[in-house]
């Protein structure tokens, strides 16, 4: 109780780069189940930060805890170095589902959400129209949202979160169900905001795109932080520098078990198996030679499909 009272007025110490968000040891326990376990990370000014993980790994719960929609069991959250009570105004949040009123027109929604976000109606309308133009839905401004397609509705959702020009934008699954055109439009919009100094946090399953557009990321697994940092830092931490992909002519159960034990012993991860195809996560190419010599020794016929640098998608396979 006393600790929370002190935290309420406490400011995050400004060290190094300016931090838009600091999360320290955040945990959430509900009905005896741990949804989040001791998560800490930092989001800096003007960066796109991705939170990735499988469904149910706790990405949305983490965002809701940060925003205070769930009561956190322990830990601290600071927006721009201040307690959320003093700094929430600088944050924009976009829920993963539609979060506008379907019986108000788009402009009426913009007016209402301007007020919710504590800005003057005129400013909200001006910003709203500008964003609608950017998202190419300006011609629908006097229509009801149900006239919009799924992708347009997603864009409207984001417009309504940005009306007050937040310094930190938190987007929960903004790309879910979007086609390439809509995704591209949204990435361009987010990159524009980033270039203007806005910090953006997104949760997504589109790992390759997240790798391309975001500067740093947090990979979550079962409510815990699996790894965190830039893509190369993560690669360094996981020690996964090469992806070795082979196909057997025939793969018996007994030999597969033998191969698994061999890999375990040599600290090589088999990250994916499908029928006779296998993918290995290698730290260095020497490990590849160890595998090939093991296969040759055991007289196994196989074809090498590829040896390549892993993408973020393959990193996710390691985290499972």
């Amino acid at each position: 109780m006393i600790k929370s009272f002190i935290n309420f007025f406490k400011k995050e110490e400004a060290i190094g780069r300016n931090k838009a968000l600091v999360v320290k040891n955040l945990s959430n326990v509900y009905s005896g189940k741990k949804f989040l376990d001791n998560i800490s990370f930092v989001v800096y000014y003007g960066e796109i930060f991705s939170i990735i993980g499988l469904s149910g790994s706790g990405k949305s719960s983490l965002l809701k805890n940060i925003l205070g929609l769930y009561p956190k069991s322990s830990g601290e959250v600071y927006f721009f170095g201040k307690h959320p009570f003093f700094s929430k105004k600088m944050v924009g949040y976009c829920h993963q589902d539609d979060s506008f009123l379907p019986d108000l027109t788009i402009m009426e929604n913009i007016e209402l959400f301007s007020s919710i976000n504590g800005i003057k109606k005129e400013i909200g309308i001006k910003n709203g129209i500008e964003f609608l133009k950017k998202f190419r839905i300006e011609k629908h401004k006097d229509d009801f949202p149900n006239k919009l397609s799924g992708g347009q509705r997603k864009r409207l959702n984001i417009v309504l979160s940005c009306l007050h020009s937040p310094k930190l934008l938190i987007l929960d699954e903004p790309f879910a169900g979007l086609d390439y055109f809509n995704r591209r439009l949204l990435w361009d919009f987010l990159t524009d905001l980033k270039n203007k100094g806005v910090s953006i946090i997104i949760t997504t399953h589109l790992l390759t795109e997240a790798q391309e557009y975001s500067s740093r990321m947090l990979i979550m697994k079962n409510g815990k932080k699996f790894t965190y940092g830039t893509f190369s830092e993560i690669r360094e931490k996981i020690k996964f520098n090469h992806l070795y992909y082979i196909r057997f002519n025939r793969l018996g159960k007994a030999f597969f078990e033998k191969l698994k034990s061999f890999c375990e012993f040599k600290k090589i991860k088999i990250i994916y198996t499908y029928k006779r195809e296998l993918q290995f996560a290698l730290e260095n190419l020497e490990q590849k030679n160890k595998i090939t010599s093991f296969l040759e020794k055991n007289k196994q016929n196989y074809v090498e499909i590829s040896t390549s640098e892993p993408s973020l998608d393959e990193f996710m396979l390691v985290s499972i």
């Binding site: 949040y93 506008f100 919710i116 309504l160």
Partner: peptide, 18 residues
């Protein structure tokens, strides 16, 4: 219920003093 269904309350809570 209408406000809840349309996630309006989540938006309110994510904002300040609403």
């Amino acid at each position: 219920i209408y406000d809840k269904k349309n996630n309006f309350i989540i938006r309110l809570r994510a904002g300040k003093n609403n």
